[in-house]
Design a binder for these strands. Structure first.
Length: 284
DNA sequence: ATGAGC
DNA sequence: TCATC
């Protein structure tokens, strides 16, 4: 018995689905037979972009407005990129990867995902999250699992999570779930407070340092001024901008974060993601 | 700390 | 040994 597919199209000026889903900000999407397939908001989704028209064909029971919000179609990407286009190097990244948009991720899923990301490369993170969802999420379609809610992870024991090969990260996930479940950390409140205060609240959790906090703040909490400095961004900035007076010959990670905010301005988070993607694909 | 790759 | 969104 065939069910009627929920198909519709999605469109925004200046949107590249491949760059957006491949750039390393999300871990639940895979390109399968030409369709980006993933689980979002408890639903399986399959997306394919027409290279000519730019229209995205969507096969998912979530409404169009969900994806318009998810892909931040409310961001005027042209003016944002214009604003962060400060020099020749940035201009090159922008021109190459034009259409890469930040994604508005679910706060809880984003928090746990980046907690798991510590000292792992993207393929490892994807594998671990997928295993965790298989063991603690709900099966929503054959072989596809939702991201586990806090209560499901609170009741996980260390050994079970070790079976997901989370290593030292397992205990941190359980503790974070408990903080959220107990109301010590109210994720919705993070939206209300400013960047610095939000960062402090996240860094209160074990396993969340400055870089992880910045990723979560940028990808889930609307803090565009977050400028996550990982190994890639660190190398790029040191190589390309290391001579700037600002660094005084000493470009630490924390200084790089502050520099990014100052140099690129309020949309530095976008600039950072273009750098990150370019560095991953092309090296330096 | 751990996995990929040499 | 190297790299780790």
């Amino acid at each position: 018995m065939n069910s009627i597919p929920d198909m519709y199209t999605l469109f925004s000026e200046n949107f590249n689905l491949d760059y957006t889903l491949d750039c390393g900000q999300v871990f639940r999407w895979d390109l399968i037979d030409g369709w980006w397939t993933g689980v979002v908001n408890g639903h399986v989704a399959r997306l394919q972009q027409d290279k000519g028209s730019g229209e995205v064909l969507v096969d998912c029971s979530l409404p169009k407005c969900f994806f318009e919000n998810y892909f931040r179609f409310d961001d005027d990407l042209d003016s944002i990129l214009q604003e962060v286009n400060k020099d020749k190097f940035m201009n090159e990244a922008i021109n190459k990867y034009m259409g890469l948009r930040l994604i508005r991720q679910d706060p809880w899923e984003c928090l746990i995902s980046y907690m798991l990301a510590t000292a792992w490369s993207i393929p490892n993170i994807k594998r671990a999250i997928s295993m965790m969802c298989r063991n603690y999420g709900d099966e929503i379609e054959d072989g596809y699992y939702s991201f586990p809610e806090p209560h499901a992870l609170v009741h996980a024991c260390d050994d079970d999570l070790r079976a997901c090969k989370l290593g030292f990260r397992g205990g941190r996930v359980i503790k974070a779930a408990r903080h959220v479940e107990d109301g010590n950390l109210v994720l919705d409140d993070i939206f209300q407070v400013d960047y610095e205060e939000a960062k402090q609240r996240l860094m209160f959790l074990e396993g969340i340092g400055e870089k992880v906090a910045d990723c979560i703040l940028l990808f889930a909490f609307e803090k565009m001024e977050a400028f996550p400095v990982d190994t890639h961004v660190e190398k790029v900035v040191k190589t390309v901008y290391g001579h700037h007076e600002y660094f005084n010959g000493n470009a630490t990670k924390s200084k790089i974060g502050n520099w990014g905010r100052m140099y690129f301005g309020r949309y530095c988070g976008y600039a950072q993601q273009y750098f990150f993607y370019q560095k991953r694909l092309e090296g330096i």
